[in-house]
Design a protein around this nucleic acid. Structure first.
Lengths: 134, 134
DNA sequence: TTGTACTGTAATAAAAATTATTACAAATAA
DNA sequence: TTATTTGTAATAATTTTTATTACAGTACAA
């Protein structure tokens, strides 16, 4: 697993608590990662309609919708990996009766786990998450 | 995220459906990864009392307890990463009011998510998981 | 209309994590 | 006592992640 979700959440938190537009440079300063990485993640958030941007001088980024209407599930959705609990890159032996079937059963398990996870994350709005900050 | 959980689950599934002892070499053949990696994961499963081993010729591995008494939560526990939904390696800017606090709030969120996840995985025994195989 | 400060994105490099390989000591069955 | 297996360390190869550099395009503002 990588750091995409924490970074996306950090971005969304910053945007939620900001007045106007924020630049990727400013956010990179708060998160403490490279600004190109921030813009890449923002580009992804824009594609998913959670953020909107304004190009040009004095441009920047802002939430596309009210924070009360955005859940953590939607944010996670934008960075969600193929496999919730990890994906091995091996190809199990098709000649083995277990190896032949295991990927299918893991996939089914992951679908169930994902459901539970999304339900949990869907319970918290971005606004509620940010409200916890002092 | 890495492939440790699928591999650990594959190991446990093989052991569950086996009669006697299985060698790491055999399991590596089914999983299709290096046998040293399998032994490393087995070593971890042994440390967590889910597997026991027998050294020497004709040695191998077997479940330490009946599969009906082992849940997927216990298996996940043995490979669980620090951060369920990913960990960024950045150190957020302590001079930023958001950056200063975000890690604490992410940690709290992760504790909640972990609870839900473990509950879900705790509902399925290894025996039940393996029963799905044809 | 020109300079400045942004976004957007590609290409590449650096760093970190994961997996594979090699090697060998120790155990135990035959 | 030989063969087979676990246990583990050291190292190499591969893959993934993150950083850096570069620059085109947009829009504001003097």
């Amino acid at each position: 697993m990588n750091g995409r979700f924490p970074i996306a959440l950090h971005i969304m938190t910053l945007l939620c608590s900001a007045e106007g537009l924020l630049s990727s440079e400013y956010m990179a300063g708060s998160i403490n990662v490279n600004s190109v990485l921030v813009r890449k993640e923002l580009s992804n958030l824009i594609k998913n309609k959670l953020v909107s941007s304004q190009e040009g001088k004095n441009g920047g980024y802002t939430l596309a919708r009210p924070a009360a209407q955005i859940t953590l599930a939607e944010i996670y959705e934008t960075v969600k990996p193929e496999a919730v609990l990890g994906q091995a890159k091996n190809q199990p032996n098709p000649a083995c009766p277990i190896g032949k079937q295991i990927n299918q059963h893991i996939t089914e398990l992951y679908i169930d786990v994902d459901k539970v996870l999304m339900q949990k994350l869907g319970n918290t709005t971005l606004l509620a998450f940010v409200a916890k900050f002092n």
